[in-house]
C-alpha cells in the first residue's frame, strides 16, 4: 500500500474505529466536564487536537533521535550505543506540559474570551490522558520492538485523526446533553449516570465502524491496480 493509503488508514482508524474516547476511554474527564455546550465542546476539541499534534511531533522526534535504543544523539555523545527508553515517561510528560503551556499562552494572547470560558480545563489538558496516550501509541511504532517503523507523517496522521475523533465525540455528546436538559429524567439518573448511559449508546454506535478499515484497504487495492 502506498504512503497516502497508510496515512488515511491510520487517521481513519484513530478517528472512528478506535475512537479515543469511546473505544480507549482516554480523555473521559473533559468528555464529562466540558460537554454541556456545543460551542465550548468544539473549542475544547480543537485545543486538544492542536496540543496532540504538537506533542506527537515533539515526542516522535525525541524518541527517534534521543530515546530509542541506539539513537543517534546520545550515541554520538557517549561514543557507543545507548538505551534511554527508561526515561520515556518522564520526558513525554515534560514535552506535553511544555506544549500545553504554549497553547495556553497563545489562547490568552489572541482569544481572551475563550481563555476565560475554558477556565481550569485548559491547564488540565496536561493531565488529559488522550495526549500521553497518543505519544505512547507512537512510541510503540518507533525503534526497538516495532515491526513497522513509523515516520513523522504517520505520527501526525494518528494525532490528527485522534484529535478529530475526540472533537467528534465531544460535540456529539454536548448536542445530546443540550437536548437532555429539556427531558424528564428519572431522579437517580440525573447528572453523571445518564451521561454515562448515553456514552454507552454512542460507543455502541461507534462499534459499527469495526472492520470498515478492511473495506478501505480493499478500495485502495482496487484503485491501485488497473
Amino acid at each position: 500500500m502506498d504512503t497516502l493509503g497508510e496515512i488515511l488508514m491510520i487517521a481513519f482508524g484513530a478517528a472512528l474505529i478506535h475512537n479515543f474516547v469511546l473505544h480507549y476511554f482516554v480523555g473521559i474527564c473533559p468528555f464529562i466536564g466540558v460537554s454541556r455546550r456545543v460551542d465550548l465542546a468544539f473549542s475544547m476539541g480543537c485545543a486538544v487536537t492542536f496540543v496532540v499534534c504538537v506533542a506527537s511531533v515533539l515526542s516522535w522526534t525525541l524518541t527517534t533521535w534521543v530515546l530509542q535504543p541506539g539513537a543517534p544523539i546520545p550515541s554520538f555523545i557517549a561514543g557507543r550505543d545507548t538505551d534511554l527508553t527508561i526515561l520515556t515517561y518522564l520526558s513525554y510528560i515534560v514535552v506535553i506540559a511544555a506544549s500545553v503551556q504554549f497553547v495556553e499562552l497563545y489562547i490568552r494572547r489572541y482569544h481572551p474570551p475563550l481563555y476565560k470560558s475554558f477556565g481550569v480545563y485548559l491547564p488540565l489538558i496536561t493531565t488529559n490522558c488522550a495526549i500521553l496516550f497518543a505519544c505512547l501509541e507512537i512510541s510503540k511504532h518507533v525503534g526497538g520492538t516495532a515491526t513497522d517503523a513509523w515516520g513523522l507523517h504517520h505520527a501526525l496522521a494518528l494525532a490528527l485523526g485522534g484529535g478529530i475523533g475526540f472533537t467528534l465525540a465531544l460535540v456529539l455528546m454536548s448536542g445530546i446533553r443540550q437536548e437532555l436538559d429539556l427531558c424528564d429524567i428519572p431522579r437517580p439518573f440525573v447528572g453523571i449516570p445518564v451521561v454515562m448511559v448515553v456514552g454507552g449508546i454512542l460507543a455502541l454506535a461507534f462499534l459499527g465502524f469495526t472492520g470498515s478499515d478492511q473495506g478501505l484497504v480493499d478500495a485502495f487495492a482496487k484503485g491501485g491496480t488497473p
Binding site: I192, P193, L204
Partner: peptide
C-alpha cells in the same frame, strides 16, 4: 466490549443515588 463499561458505571452510579 467498551459500551458495557459505560453502561455498568452509569447503572452502578444510579443505584448508589437510589
Amino acid at each position: 466490549l467498551p459500551p458495557g463499561a459505560f453502561f455498568t458505571f452509569g447503572l452502578l452510579m444510579a443505584l448508589l443515588s437510589v
